[in-house]
């Protein structure tokens, strides 16, 4: 019997269902620990300095990997936050859409209000699109190329992707 008395207040205050989720977390951790524990009993353990090095295709690793990397990833994360919040706002609206649509005096207003909200955000998407921030390889702004070395200018035109 698996009795979890300390879950009592949590489950009763969340009408049971989120208590189930909490039990899922616990069971997941137990199974993960169990699998790792069994593996620990069976597997060999012969660590050596060469084995513990960072894998870099057989070469000795050069420097740390904890470095700055392409700013593009941060931009994607920023766009994501904006649009994910938009989607989160859409969910409650979608749930009540049909029931509110039938309310006299509201009707299509429910729909068009959300369309205006989406329109504003789509304008934002159109803006970053026009600015070129959605391109993985962003062309640099119209920077005048130096006249002397055309070959170097051609190389500088595009920022290499990762």
């Amino acid at each position: 019997m698996i009795a979890l008395p300390f879950l009592g207040t949590v489950t009763s205050s969340m009408s049971g269902h989120y208590g189930t989720v909490l039990i899922f977390v616990l069971v997941g951790i137990v199974f993960a620990a169990l699998a790792l524990g069994v593996a620990k009993l069976i597997r060999p353990s012969n660590p050596s300095p060469a084995k513990m090095t960072t894998y870099e295709c057989g070469e000795l690793p050069i420097g740390s990997s904890w470095i700055r990397f392409n700013v593009r990833f941060y931009l994607i994360a920023l766009f994501f936050i904006i649009f994910d919040v938009e989607v989160i706002f859409l969910y409650p609206w979608a749930v009540v859409f049909k029931s509110l649509f039938k309310v006299p005096g509201l009707g299509a207003l429910v729909f068009w209000e959300m369309i205006i909200f989406l329109g504003i955000l789509t304008l934002g998407l159109a803006y970053v699109w026009a600015k070129g921030d959605l391109d993985w390889v962003k062309r640099l702004m119209d920077r005048p190329a130096p006249q002397t070395d055309t070959k170097a200018a051609a190389l500088e035109e595009e920022v290499p992707a990762q």
Binding site: M1, A3, L7, T11, G19, T20, I23, L26, V27, G28
Partner: peptide, 17 residues
């Protein structure tokens, strides 16, 4: 009732795993 619920939830979690 609470213990029953928790047992059932644990069984379900085991089944899902």
């Amino acid at each position: 009732a609470q213990a029953l619920h928790n047992t059932a939830a644990a069984l379900m979690a085991t089944l899902m795993f």
